[in-house]
Amino acid sequence: MWKQMLPALRMTLLMTVVTGLIYPGVITGLCQVLFRSQANGSLITRNGQVVGSALIGQSFTKAEYFQPRPSAAGAEGYDASASGGSNLGPTSQKLIDRVKGSVARLHTDNPAMQGAVPADLATASGSGLDPHLSPASAAVQIERVAKARGISVDQLRPVVDQLTEGRDLGLLGEPRVNVLALNLALDEKFPVR
């Protein structure tokens, strides 16, 4: 083994340079040229101001906005520098209490909501930054949002449908609506007076 020490040291340093500096450096250079927007976080600007990332969820509490799933990222949720899930197990009292609270609030905020709550709407995502809602979770909020913006449900529904994405390649993952994209579209089309 002792005879192997010198080659081991040299190989460690060499690999550090090749795979730890050159490789990520080359990838950074290429990505910054080829995919500039994606490489820097798919940031969205409105009136010259960065308002978020197309991929990262943010919290919405006002009635005139579609509201995202509960989030366990950071103390107040949707902390994009402290990602993570609740890590509460299926028999956790804390989980049941939290979901109970969410369900009650959903019913208060959306009196028109009927039937069972869509599975994603009262549960926290793994990243705490889930940018999406299922189409069903968006649908149950349409009436509230329309009312808060002083428009009719029939005016609002097409906007939601238009921003609903299907499965990738018609097959992969699940249908979904990007909450930030939807709310930005609402602010543009039906601004709150």
Binding site: G85, P90, S137
Partner: peptide, 15 residues
């Protein structure tokens, strides 16, 4: 329009 099941800790896009 929604995945059902145990969505705690899961992302909508993956289901």
């Amino acid at each position: 329009t929604q995945s059902g099941g145990n969505m705690e800790g899961k992302e909508v896009r993956f289901g």
